[in-house]
């Protein structure tokens, strides 16, 4: 245990030291190879130009290397593996995708993922917007925001334990220690095993993600709301608009861009949702989702890399439109900007 702490500290020192040494050393080496000081005018200019060509690559080099090994190569290789057999040895064509289309569990996952996509981003954005608007009006708004924001720091596993305790079930008539069933029993209802009710259990799992992510939506939207020019709202008030008209007709249209950003960010997160399903149900009772199914196939029966890769590619395909839109948006911005 002591040696583990020691080696961790050593790694930080070696890692950081190594990075500094690389950047400093490479830079120094470049200066030595193409000296710009102490040489005649013409040569100095040539060397400066050469330095200018090489130096950017020294700076981006390490990042580029890591990105290639950990993201670019894997993406290409996952694509390739999705056409291979379980060990990744023989080409099997579209067999993995054909299997997926015919597999009941895969189809359940796809349906559930659509359900998550339809509910979670909308719920987070809507609740976040409402809380942002309401907290703007009261003196303790910042404290309230901070508390709603807090679950964002909690891990999905931690949140799952927290909510599993809320959904805790005891037989009817016993003292319920889960707050939801206690409430239901208090109202005279029958306690339920919430996470094993097919179809509806999806929603009880979604609640956890909504609980975590609403704070994110709230913070971003709140800052966008503050950017709305006062005059537009004052003008609406003078024209006799009621609060709901101001909200829907004046405020929301002015922050559409931000709403879209929040929506897409949460959409990507939802596509990757894994921890919550793994810890709450592990896909039982028809609550499976793609990311958990993919993880399952990575190790099930010694691991089927072909099927796992095919499921990963399906998740990737859903992200591609957002990716293209992001890149377009960013290149347009930098084209107009500096």
């Amino acid at each position: 245990m002591g040696s583990q702490i020691f080696s961790a500290i050593l790694v930080i020192i070696v890692g950081v030291g190594g990075c500094v040494a690389y950047f400093w050393g490479a830079n120094k080496l470049l200066d030595l190879a193409f000296p710009s000081r102490g040489v005649a005018g013409r040569a100095a200019i040539d060397n400066l130009r050469r330095q200018g060509i090489v130096r950017p690559w020294l700076f981006v080099g390490p990042a580029l290397l890591i990105l290639t090994v950990y993201l670019i190569y894997p993406v290409v290789d996952t694509l390739r593996l999705s056409f291979m057999d379980r060990a990744g040895q023989n080409f099997v064509g579209l067999a993995n995708y054909q299997w997926a289309v015919g597999d009941r569990e895969f189809r359940t996952s796809i349906l559930n993922n659509f359900l998550w996509l339809a509910v979670v981003p909308a719920a987070c954005t809507f609740l976040g917007l409402i809380i942002a608007v309401l907290t703007d009006k009261i003196w303790w708004g910042n404290i309230a925001k901070s508390l709603v924001f807090m679950p964002l720091a909690i891990s999905f596993v931690g949140a799952s334990v927290i909510w599993k305790f809320i959904y805790e079930y005891r037989a009817e008539g016993q003292t319920q220690i889960g707050i939801l069933n206690a409430f239901i029993q208090y109202l005279g209802g029958t306690p339920q095993v919430w996470i094993s009710i097919p179809f509806w259990n999806n929603f009880f799992l979604m609640v956890i993600l909504i609980w975590i992510q609403t704070g994110f939506a709230m913070v971003i939207l709140s800052s966008a709301l503050r950017g709305i020019p006062e005059e537009t709202i004052e003008a609406a008030v003078i024209d006799g608009a009621n609060p709901f008209q101001i909200f829907w007709r004046i405020m929301v249209p002015q922050i559409w861009g931000t709403i879209a950003v929040v929506w897409t960010t949460i959409t990507i997160l939802v596509l990757k949702v894994f921890d919550i399903v793994l810890t709450m149900t592990n896909g039982q009772w028809n609550s499976q989702v793609l990311a958990n199914l993919m993880f399952d196939w990575m190790f099930r029966g010694g691991g089927d890399f072909g099927r796992g890769a095919a499921i990963a590619v399906v998740i990737m395909l859903a992200v591609v439109p957002i990716m293209i839109w992001n890149i377009r948006q960013a290149t347009r911005e930098s084209g107009e900007g500096h």
């Binding site: 130096r55 894997p74 990507i268 990575m298 890149i327």
Partner: peptide, 27 residues
């Protein structure tokens, strides 16, 4: 810094931002 391929690199990084982790795991 100005260097050839800079715009392409920036675009690539923005693209990589949203690549699901699942794509990296098996390889």
């Amino acid at each position: 810094m100005r260097f050839p391929g800079r715009a392409l690199l920036i675009a690539a990084i923005i693209g990589l931002l949203v690549v699901p982790l699942q794509m990296s795991l098996i390889p």
